[in-house]
Design a protein around this nucleic acid. Structure first.
Lengths: 357, 357
DNA sequence: CTGAAAGCGCTTACAG
DNA sequence: CTGAAAGCGCTTACAG
């Protein structure tokens, strides 16, 4: 009973008591040097297999974990990506677009698969959101996410580029933008869904959403919408466009504005699903039936779109792919590889709100 | 032109070129020792004000940021909280309960106010979610969030307690639980909303949601529901309870199950808003009017509840307060202060789905 | 009020 | 295959 195994057992019991185990503790117990422990645990090939097994066993017993701060400091790299989520105008605490939550989930997963941690931060556009994450070595790079006024954001982006910060942005992909952007094909999406509405026999199609350079994603959707109308021989009418940001409330109010204008419309293309859902609410309250009186379509395909009544026809963005590409592009950037902005295809998801099912 | 100011200007231009500035660089430029720079920049009172200003100016010029890895290593503290979000059964990529997103937002804000960073991680209940965040010094403590099978999670929680990990959990607050829990008053919420339904003249009230120890939050809501019914003289009927997890799909299917059973019901209390929304969808498809034929109530008050048709009556959880208390409790725990589990009050938000407006 | 010294726990050349 | 040495960039006693 009295021998090495007894000795080891004793050690395993007493060591954790004096705080967290370090690689040096393990080295002593294993009778090797501390660097060897480090090598063994990181799977270096230049370590004897038997030595490695012994070290691993002890490490497991002591519940040893590499200290990230020490490791990162030494390696000058954090193994962390910061996700800066900004929304403007400032939403009420509880308002995050479900679409971004999808993105958040897929980004988290993509990071985990690359063994990166994700630091998350919600920012107002108005604050200093370049945020020093990379400067303070807390993160190796930044992912920027959010709807907001692009023109306001632009100078910040330029600043980031100038500082040499590694970042990728989700948003409209347009020529001349600072940094790398990944976005879906907003124009095509707007075009396709509008064409669908026209095919359903609707001519007077309203567009709910900002249509200016301040909101390039919405603007692209608007342009797709306008082109589809043009091709159908009935150009877009300014009186059928109502500004809206991406929230139910905004969609709700946009419909009220539309009614106030007393323009005729038998369909609505909302620049986001949340806008569409708010719009449907307002239509119902006015006794206008969806889709009989007014067909409604959105953009994003948030999980809820299938569960409103009627189900919402919409343009699906592939958030899973988007998250993967964002993370992958950022890691390439960090590694100094060349990266290009990219557009991801969209596809229509048709449901009852346009009379499609 | 040739003098100190010129010298400084030159330095400011050339220094950043050779990589990130360190406190030593600043010390050289300011003509002080490196520890003095460290003190000055952290606002230590034992630094001459003029010296401090000089140092700050140089730091700003060089865009200097304290290296978090070095600082954390030295101080043996990370300034970071890890949020472990787990959901089980495994949701499709894009499914995160909006309620938790609200929590996420409020937790992020509460962390920011305390100058803590938030590391986020989505976990399957089945994985090793104790996750080593604290062990590897990446985080000073953990916040656990998620609906899931409590009984499965319990042993993990006990493990965390045993390891001395600092953590707080959002969930049911019940005697004998390992660690600190913060939760809303699920029982009261279930009781109040059921009483409201009864007051609307509904007697046959179905409950959609798991009602067992596996899901203590739902179970508490169920108990509140049962007690309210008891008090009204019509005890809960097992045939009116249908298991459901918190998703629209699950609510949709639960209604189908209810119909299959051919039991009579004129109201539904769903254990979450998502369940309620799925239930309403199924009712609509069956031609049952809400609230005329069936009144529907949910739990959570997610932003969307106001925008479905009709608006959903529900039990509001105060996510803002919840996030603050979670973070505050965790920080107290980290500081070694005594902390108790706590229950947060709820309140009813009544809308059209129960005929209340 | 300031500086010289030590050390947080790793990883990485450099020898052997 | 393994070890002795150096050093990542800070913070914190300890002197003065």
């Amino acid at each position: 009973m009295i021998g090495p195994s007894f000795f080891h057992a004793t050690v395993a019991v007493t060591a954790p008591i004096k705080g967290k185990a370090t690689s040096l503790d393990i080295a002593h117990l294993a009778g090797v040097s501390q660097p060897t422990v480090s090598r063994a645990l990181r799977g270096s090939p230049m370590v004897n297999e038997e030595t490695r097994r012994r070290i691993q066993a002890i490490a497991a017993q002591l519940n040893y974990k590499v200290d990230k701060n020490a490791s990162n400091l030494r390696r000058q790299h954090s193994g962390t990506i910061a996700l800066l989520f900004f929304e403007d105008p400032t939403p009420d605490d509880s308002q995050i677009n479900p679409f971004f939550l999808s993105m958040l989930g897929s980004i988290t997963r993509a990071c985990a698969m690359q063994s990166y941690d994700l630091l998350i931060s919600f920012q107002q556009l108005s604050t200093n959101w370049q945020a020093d994450y990379e400067d303070s070595n807390k993160a190796d790079g930044l992912i920027l996410l959010g709807y907001g006024d692009y023109l306001e954001a632009q100078s910040r982006l330029e600043q980031l580029v100038q500082q040499g910060t590694h970042f990728v942005r989700w948003g409209a992909v347009l020529p001349g933008q600072p940094g790398i952007s990944i976005g879906c094909d907003n124009f095509q999406g707007g075009h396709d869904i509008t064409t669908h509405l026209i095919g359903q026999g609707r001519c007077d199609i309203a567009f709910l959403g900002h249509a200016s350079n301040h909101y390039p994603e919405f603007f692209e959707r608007y342009r797709g919408y306008a082109q589809a109308l043009q091709q159908a021989g009935s150009p877009a009418q300014p009186s059928l466009q109502v500004d809206a940001v991406t929230s139910e409330q905004s969609g709700y109010e946009a419909v009220q504005e539309l009614l106030r204008r007393k323009v005729r419309f038998n369909a609505i293309f909302a620049a986001s699903d949340l806008i569409a859902i708010g719009a449907m609410k307002a239509l119902h309250e006015q006794g206008r039936r969806v889709p009989e009186d007014v067909a409604v379509a959105g953009f994003d395909d948030i999980p809820l779109a299938a569960f409103v009544n009627p189900g919402l026809s919409t343009v699906q963005q592939d958030t899973k792919l988007a998250g993967q590409i964002l993370v992958q592009s950022l890691l390439q950037l960090i590694d100094g590889e060349p990266v290009e902005s990219r557009t991801i295809p969209v596809k229509l998801t048709l449901r009852g709100s346009t009379g499609a099912s």
